[in-house]
Amino acid sequence: MAMRADDIADLIRAGIPDAEVEITDLAGDGDHYAAKVTSASFAGMPRVKQHQAVYAALGGRMGGVLHALQLTTGVPK
């Protein structure tokens, strides 16, 4: 079962409350998304830790309900 883009964004915002989230459906199939997530809480974190924070916010859905997520993270400018 595919996830909706809004559900992905809501999960990320619930786990990272100050996050700005942009979700793009890459294939139009509800299984392959790109996410751009910016958060002040990422300041000073290496990129891998930023990605781990997003995956944690998704609560184990990666690889199951959510098949593929191209992730870009950073701090607001």
Rank of each mutant, 00 (worst) to 15 (best):
M1N: 13
M1D: 15
M1V: 13
A2R: 12
M3T: 03
M3N: 02
M3Q: 06
M3C: 04
M3L: 14
M3F: 06
R4H: 12
R4C: 08
R4S: 11
R4Y: 09
A5I: 02
D6H: 12
D6V: 14
D6K: 12
I8L: 15
I8W: 12
I8D: 11
A9I: 11
D10V: 07
D10M: 08
R13L: 07
A14E: 11
G15Y: 05
G15E: 08
I16Q: 04
P17T: 12
D18V: 05
A19W: 03
E20Y: 09
E20N: 06
E20W: 10
E20T: 09
E22K: 11
I23R: 06
I23N: 03
T24K: 13
D25P: 00
L26I: 04
L26S: 05
L26N: 05
A27Q: 06
A27D: 08
D29Q: 10
D29H: 10
G30F: 03
G30H: 04
G30T: 05
D31Y: 02
D31L: 07
D31I: 01
D31C: 03
H32A: 05
H32M: 12
Y33V: 03
Y33E: 02
Y33M: 04
A34I: 08
A35N: 08
V37D: 01
T38Y: 00
S39Q: 02
A40K: 10
A40C: 10
A40I: 13
S41F: 06
S41I: 10
S41D: 12
A43M: 14
M45N: 11
P46W: 03
P46A: 14
R47F: 14
V48K: 15
V48L: 15
K49E: 14
K49M: 13
Q50A: 03
H51W: 00
Q52M: 07
V54K: 00
Y55F: 12
A56V: 05
A56G: 11
A57T: 11
A57L: 13
L58P: 01
G59P: 09
G60V: 12
G60H: 13
G60C: 14
R61S: 10
M62Y: 07
G63Q: 03
G63P: 02
G64N: 12
V65M: 11
H67K: 04
H67A: 03
H67R: 08
A68Y: 03
L69H: 11
Q70S: 15
Q70R: 13
L71I: 02
L71S: 00
T72E: 08
T72H: 05
T73N: 01
T73Q: 00
T73W: 00
G74H: 04
G74S: 05
G74Q: 02
P76V: 08
P76Y: 05
